[in-house]
């Protein structure tokens, strides 16, 4: 048994956001999706926009996002979340609309929808969780899989000649005139989680300005498919993912307004 500490004279300074349903998530232990879900829901709670937010769920590990987020949500066909979000936002321009997508959904089958939604400058927020592997289907190679990384469909490591290069989505959409805020963040350390929350808050607030698409890429881990413990996977993320996917702000046209 661990120790018990009296909570008398104590203030509660952090708790699970009320906008996250009281339900155990189906994600594997240590998965970054849980942190990303919690951050989005914390922002919805803090901005007081629970009644005015519509989320678009993807296909992939996070397909059940609507079980956990206590807001209005819509499931989209594989890769088409940005297209669905476009329709929702145009019908309800006073609502906050965001898509929550993984790399298989956003960067593989949905590249077309993503790029054109960003290029049209739809007033939506795109939350892109990049873990360099197809999680739900069993760890196959994704467009974001690193060169040399071992997956079930490239068992000797991804090779450039046969499989091409990993795609950097943040850099790609930052050069489109339709985007207004693009940042890449990670959720493997407490400091980075705080930064990620700030970036997501800015992205949601940018919808009020109606100036274009906001795009947040969250570099995340996948302990099960990387075949590591959660702590090891966060270290691997630091050493291998971040040199290829550098964190930082890629575009900011909203600050100072």
């Amino acid at each position: 048994m661990g120790i018990t500490v009296s909570l008398e004279n104590m203030d509660k300074i952090y708790e699970r956001p009320k906008t996250l349903k009281d339900q155990v998530m189906h994600y594997c232990p240590g998965c970054g999706h849980g942190v990303a879900h919690r951050l989005v829901m914390e922002i919805v709670a803090e901005l007081g926009i629970q009644e005015k937010t519509i989320g678009i769920a993807p296909v992939g590990c996070s397909v059940f996002a609507y079980y956990y987020m206590d807001i209005d949500m819509q499931e989209a066909a594989h890769g088409r979340a940005c297209a669905v979000a476009t329709g929702v936002k145009r019908m309800m321009p006073d609502h906050y609309v965001f898509t929550y997508q993984g790399d298989g959904d956003l960067a593989a089958i949905g590249t077309n929808e993503t790029i054109h939604a960003c290029n049209r400058g739809e007033n939506i927020t795109i939350v892109f969780v990049n873990n360099a592997v197809y999680g739900m289907t069993g760890g196959q190679m994704a467009p974001t899989t690193l060169i040399g990384q071992i997956t079930t469909t490239c068992p000797s490591g991804r090779e450039q000649v046969a499989n091409g290069y990993p795609i950097r989505m943040s850099e790609l959409v930052a050069q489109l005139p339709g985007t207004t805020y693009v940042e890449r963040v990670a959720v493997n350390t407490p400091a980075r989680v705080r930064k990620a929350k700030k970036a997501l808050t800015k992205a949601f607030k940018s919808q009020e300005l109606k100036k274009g698409t906001s795009f947040i890429e969250i570099v995340s881990n996948c302990p099960s498919n990387w075949k590591m413990t959660p702590v090891e996977s966060n270290k691997w993320l630091d050493e291998n993912m971040l040199p290829y996917y550098p964190l930082g702000l890629y575009k900011d046209e909203i600050s100072g307004e």
Partner: peptide, 27 residues
């Protein structure tokens, strides 16, 4: 909790993927 050394820094709650941690601080 295995020892009474908590400084209420919230690091654990920030990285918890399942949001199961509630943090308290002495008034």
């Amino acid at each position: 909790m295995v020892q009474d050394e908590c400084i209420a820094c919230v690091s654990c709650a920030l990285v918890c993927p399942d949001a199961v941690i509630t943090v308290y601080r002495m008034k």
